[in-house]
Nucleic acid binder design. Sequence first.
DNA 1: TGATTTACGTAGAACGGTGCACAAACGGCG
DNA 2: CGCCGTTTGTGCACCGTTCTACGTAAATCA
Lengths: 346, 346
Amino acid sequence: MADDGINEDGARVTIRTVAADAGVSVAAVSKVLRNAYGVSEALRTKVETSIERLGYRPSVAARGMRGQTFTLGVMLVGIDNPFLPSVYRGIESVTEKAGYKIMVGLGAARKETEVRLIEQMIDNRMDGIIIVATQLGGEVLESYAQKIPTVVIGHHEATAQQFDTINSDDVTGAELAVEALIKRGHKDIAMVALGLRRKNMADVSPQRERGYQRAMQRAGLAEYARIIQFPTADLPRGEAINALLTSPQRPSALFCWSDLDAIPILNAAVEAGLSVPDDLAIVGYDNSPVAALPLISLASIDQDGERMGRVGAEALFSRMAGRKVPEHILIRPTLIPRRSLYRPTV
Amino acid sequence: MADDGINEDGARVTIRTVAADAGVSVAAVSKVLRNAYGVSEALRTKVETSIERLGYRPSVAARGMRGQTFTLGVMLVGIDNPFLPSVYRGIESVTEKAGYKIMVGLGAARKETEVRLIEQMIDNRMDGIIIVATQLGGEVLESYAQKIPTVVIGHHEATAQQFDTINSDDVTGAELAVEALIKRGHKDIAMVALGLRRKNMADVSPQRERGYQRAMQRAGLAEYARIIQFPTADLPRGEAINALLTSPQRPSALFCWSDLDAIPILNAAVEAGLSVPDDLAIVGYDNSPVAALPLISLASIDQDGERMGRVGAEALFSRMAGRKVPEHILIRPTLIPRRSLYRPTV
DNA sequence: TGATTTACGTAGAACGGTGCACAAACGGCG
DNA sequence: CGCCGTTTGTGCACCGTTCTACGTAAATCA
């Protein structure tokens, strides 16, 4: 049984081979493959038997030239971001059921690379793309979205027309964090945000800054509110952390835009002899697996990435099916309390 | 300037559009694209100008039907394994220079999924594939490798004929870990290994077990040697960890096949009131970023994943260029000492 | 100068599918 | 029995490239 797509002559098994074997036309085989209209049960079984026997596999490349490829492109910022695996799992769970394949592009958070990947996916004739946590601007996204059904996850563009967006409600998430700290008696609560070259409200960090500001204001703590812009993740943050911890105005509590920053800060604080949460309480964002480790035990906001992935994939399918009006979905995050927020009552 | 591959009529810009615009034949444009032999400087600039002006982008799908796609497939076990990002970076650094694109498949460590992904890559007419840390058997790999140039990273198949392998020298890595523990005065050193349904020497864990055994024997500690098989990563390991830590035969030191297990064990040990490294010294494997956190400070064996990726990509290119004889490369790992191995002399 | 080589460019058949337009077969009905 | 509408299956143009085979003009050689 040649299930490697190559028959005994070493020639590739194509749709024509199958047609000849089944004694039908090429068009008939194609119809069966796409389960198109107008195939009798008899024909279908005949063709499927031949396909099975010959181990035929349709060429995606050839398909892509006219019809669908049944493949979706998923662009992720990078492989090491703790929030992505769950989003990916969510997407996968939906696409698998629908019989679609996924092709992943890893973006490394560089605009140039991201553009290249999107174009690559278009060139490869993906049926649709999901873009997760991109740095790209709304105009660029709109222009790509005209050419290929697009869903964007983790990037706030609530007015986008050509594509859908799925986001955690980052404002609410930040409010949850700050309110929890206030409830523990904190007043002097600072925030660590992502210091971007060019501030863009579409990114998650500014959204969380807004939530922070709101919650502080509502609690009458506006005078304490201050946002510390941290250098981007790949730069050395050691100095910034040091400055923060040794400052005479060191806050009593910290809300951190991401676990990516919260975890190193928490580590540095303990190393410096501070007690967490007594000297410094910390709440992060993303609920990454590391935060859950007992030695870290970092309270964090959970985005339910899996659900975001699922919802995103579903939106993409409905868009591929012809929906034109954009959907902009917010998903409510939850607070995961841990030791960095309060000392458990033993 | 229409740089979106669609001209003002809304029609797709194809090689024919470019040919017409430049006033040359389709074949000529194709030659320029592939920088094939027999193009004058004049022709080349003429064509390149048109390409630029029209914003033409060749269709990978159409290309795949006859020629190369200039795209490589990279199959990764999963997105959350700490060792993969560095391997990926290594691969990327080489392919980028060569002007090749990468398409990633995420395998989730399920054989069925992995097979599907490899076939998908063949269907998509990748020019070659790199498979990282697969569960698949040697025969399966050989059969795929006949159809597409293949390099396997992190899977020991030293006798494979059809594909190349790049591996960390896992035996030596384990020896390094055990010798370091012996040097710190430990005798009762146990090992935690990955408990596979079907033991396969191609996997990394058994290789490390062999290195452990050797080092123990060479030091005359064979009587102490014992290997504890842990359930695979996705199952709850809490019980296994508990049993290990509360056993009356608790060893004084532990060599762990992966940080994936070492980190939870270290956490549990400290939670249980043990002192690391005094009551229990631990050395892990992979040197994952979490191991480096001060609060964790887990000694670990570093595989230099980036180098493995680079070497793997280079091997793939040379194989695509026609090399037939297989290469099986071992890369020497190094020990990264941290607090879980020895208390620093202050 | 004629013969041969070299360089450049072109025509047109692949490649492996899709999908439209149409033919054939079938059954129901007046 | 002839007419008509509905299935079911087929022929063929097409998708956007590559690549072989070949034509032509210029350059080199004897």
